[in-house]
Amino acid sequence: MRDHGGNLDAAMARFGGDFADWVDLSTGINRVPYPVGEVPARAWEVLPTRTDMERLVAAARASYGTSAEVVPLAGAQGAIQSVPFVAERGMARVLAPTYNEHAAALRMGGWMVTEVGAVLDLVGADLAVVVSPNNPDGRCFAPEALRDLAERVGVLVVDESFGDAVPDASVARFVLPENVLVLRSFGKFYGLAGVRLGFALGHGAMVERLRAMAGPWPVSGPAIEIACSALADRAWQGETVARLRADCARMDDMARGAGWSLVGGTELFRTYSVGDAAGVQDRLAEGHVWSRVFPYDASWIRLGLPAPGEWARVEAAFARL
């Protein structure tokens, strides 16, 4: 099985406690979710209409500042799993290290996949994948550079799942060539991963193929209602970005105090070089704080950002280091 964060059940099996006892920082999901409020009964009772889907698409287009076509899907993961079928199979290259589902989905879809370490190594690929901002090191690539790269590959997939806090860095704010797909996640920034909503943005034949594969009801009625409200809530978005940036600074200060060095990150997670990452993860877990380590670098550990009421528990766990 591919390794992921969010595996808190495994942590509980080793270190005890139940969900309420833990601060799960193993994902990059906002720990302060958007306040959902009451969802209209109709959203639960009937299939989403074409008008409902059009409202969702318009809300996403306005929030992301894009003129692209928008295809709602079951999370960014749903988009990732659809990407292998938007073009004829061939040679794919993924800029790595990054979220491991990209390479895995392409291989399962029949592509020959190579993971590369530099943007220039993507040139010539039939399909290239760039995650920007990148998970887990936070690398961000200028939209202009990505548009130039698109001219040198067959299809360019840009995963902007962690891009909500840096809208000016989105390539989707420009007119997208027809060989570019941009993927967005709703659940991460809005702290509502269980809604299972994401979007693919683009133009032309690839978007039409994605829309056809998604079918008439790719997302639920409650997801539509929640997202239409959240995507339009500029005040909540601004307050959330400000809080997350302050929390990044606070977490970085704690990490420096522990002798860690910053690898990188985004407004939703921080990645540090700590020496023995597995050992550090265990010591934090003894204080019921769960983190993310990586099979390709034994020194890296990634931490999401606690909710305001969770910092004391995280500080107590750090005291165990």
Score class of each variant (00 low, 15 high):
residue 5 G to V: 09
residue 11 A to T: 00
residue 15 F to W: 15
residue 16 G to P: 13
residue 18 D to R: 14
residue 19 F to T: 15
residue 22 W to L: 12
residue 24 D to P: 08
residue 25 L to G: 09
residue 25 L to V: 05
residue 27 T to V: 08
residue 28 G to A: 15
residue 30 N to I: 08
residue 31 R to P: 08
residue 32 V to P: 01
residue 33 P to W: 01
residue 35 P to L: 03
residue 45 E to S: 07
residue 45 E to Y: 00
residue 46 V to R: 13
residue 48 P to E: 09
residue 48 P to F: 06
residue 50 R to V: 14
residue 51 T to S: 14
residue 52 D to E: 07
residue 52 D to T: 05
residue 53 M to S: 00
residue 54 E to P: 05
residue 54 E to Y: 05
residue 58 A to T: 05
residue 59 A to Q: 11
residue 60 A to M: 06
residue 62 A to F: 04
residue 62 A to G: 09
residue 64 Y to P: 06
residue 64 Y to A: 09
residue 64 Y to H: 12
residue 67 S to G: 15
residue 68 A to L: 12
residue 72 P to A: 10
residue 74 A to D: 14
residue 79 A to E: 00
residue 82 S to W: 08
residue 85 F to Y: 15
residue 85 F to Q: 14
residue 86 V to W: 01
residue 90 G to P: 13
residue 94 V to L: 02
residue 97 P to T: 04
residue 98 T to M: 07
residue 108 M to N: 14
residue 111 W to V: 10
residue 112 M to K: 11
residue 113 V to D: 03
residue 115 E to F: 04
residue 121 D to W: 04
residue 126 D to L: 02
residue 129 V to D: 00
residue 129 V to Q: 00
residue 132 S to M: 04
residue 134 N to D: 15
residue 139 R to K: 09
residue 140 C to M: 11
residue 143 P to G: 05
residue 144 E to W: 13
residue 148 D to N: 15
residue 153 V to Y: 08
residue 158 V to P: 04
residue 159 D to Q: 08
residue 161 S to W: 00
residue 162 F to N: 10
residue 165 A to E: 08
residue 168 D to I: 01
residue 170 S to M: 02
residue 174 F to W: 08
residue 175 V to M: 12
residue 176 L to M: 13
residue 177 P to Y: 10
residue 177 P to T: 14
residue 178 E to P: 01
residue 178 E to C: 02
residue 179 N to C: 10
residue 180 V to R: 07
residue 180 V to A: 03
residue 184 R to I: 05
residue 186 F to I: 03
residue 190 Y to V: 02
residue 190 Y to S: 06
residue 190 Y to D: 02
residue 192 L to Y: 02
residue 194 G to S: 14
residue 194 G to A: 12
residue 196 R to I: 07
residue 197 L to I: 08
residue 199 F to E: 05
residue 207 V to A: 02
residue 207 V to N: 09
residue 211 R to M: 00
residue 216 P to C: 07
residue 220 S to A: 11
residue 221 G to S: 06
residue 224 I to P: 02
residue 229 S to L: 14
residue 237 Q to E: 15
residue 237 Q to P: 00
residue 241 V to D: 06
residue 242 A to D: 09
residue 243 R to M: 04
residue 245 R to S: 09
residue 246 A to Q: 11
residue 248 C to K: 04
residue 250 R to L: 00
residue 251 M to Q: 04
residue 251 M to G: 05
residue 252 D to T: 02
residue 253 D to T: 13
residue 257 G to P: 01
residue 258 A to V: 10
residue 259 G to V: 10
residue 260 W to Q: 03
residue 266 T to F: 12
residue 267 E to D: 15
residue 270 R to W: 07
residue 270 R to G: 03
residue 270 R to F: 01
residue 271 T to N: 03
residue 275 G to K: 13
residue 277 A to R: 10
residue 280 V to Q: 13
residue 282 D to Q: 13
residue 287 G to T: 14
residue 293 V to K: 13
residue 295 P to R: 13
residue 302 R to E: 11
residue 302 R to S: 15
residue 304 G to D: 06
residue 304 G to A: 12
residue 308 P to E: 01
residue 309 G to C: 03
residue 312 A to R: 15
residue 313 R to P: 00
residue 317 A to R: 09
residue 319 A to C: 01
residue 319 A to F: 03
residue 321 L to F: 10
